[in-house]
Design a protein around this nucleic acid. Structure first.
Lengths: 131, 131
DNA sequence: CAAGGATGTGTAATGTCATAACATTATTGT
DNA sequence: ACAATAATGTTATGACATTACACATCCTTG
């Protein structure tokens, strides 16, 4: 089903899947030095492909990347992220009503959307409790 | 009404207000060399304050800044941006239904939001026509 | 007025994120 | 096997943002 990944793609994917929180490209690179990766581009190229395949998401407000939470996620239409600034964990969800409203706006304005980003930064339940 | 701005803040604000599209901090800096600005920090500090005041918004997916579209905008609750990748123009809007839905999700999950980003990248009406 | 705090400014150095350009090495389809 | 396509490796560079430190300005309050 999911197309085969190349060596570098597999390494990057495993690193992200095993992480508790989003990782920057350079952090991924650092964790893969022992596997032979040496340059940022090797990571960025893998991330590009993985993102295209919907296996990885980029968090714009963090300049970092996470593995997709849905096991066999094939590009869900619109994904929102809730990012905890304390523990770093990210929750991924989607909402059809939000999607409809944004679609409504773009249609009404003749805007053709290519990619939509929704990111909520704050503190997750667990971390609010501790505070 | 709007608190007085300092010299640097005024310069940055004027630059952004006069721009057709979002500007990066370094672009702003370049345009203000003749006014005596020399270091990125002078721009970033001004941008921080202006953003706090709600006069300027940061576009996360662009790493760039725009003047707030609403004349006397005092921190509207939730703002969405539609960013044209062809001409660079940005439209700013808000939607209470979207806000309610996202609020609903965060409340249900005990998540305390601090800042929410909604950015739609694509092509605006004008540019879709030309294509 | 003087002392102290808060805020703004100037500068250099550095840190962090991302891509261009080029050469080489698989992989795949016919 | 051959050509086309995609992936890789490497160096250098570009683009975005912050740390650390020194100095100046304004404003308060005793």
């Amino acid at each position: 089903m999911s197309a085969d990944l190349t060596r570098n793609q597999t390494l990057v994917m495993k690193t992200l899947s095993g992480a508790e929180a989003p990782l920057s490209a350079y952090t991924i690179l650092d964790r893969l030095r022992d596997d032979g990766l040496r340059a940022p581009l090797q990571v960025y190229r893998a991330l590009d492909k993985l993102t295209e395949m919907g296996l990885v998401h980029r968090l714009e407000s963090l300049n970092a990347f996470v593995a997709c939470a849905h096991p066999n996620c094939h590009e869900q239409e619109l994904i929102a992220f809730a990012i905890c600034e304390a523990c770093g964990k990210v929750e991924e969800f989607s909402d059809d009503v939000v999607k409809d409203r944004l679609d409504g706006w773009t249609r009404a304005h003749g805007f053709r959307p290519a990619k939509t980003t929704i990111e909520i930064r704050g503190n997750c339940g667990g971390c609010v409790g501790k505070a």
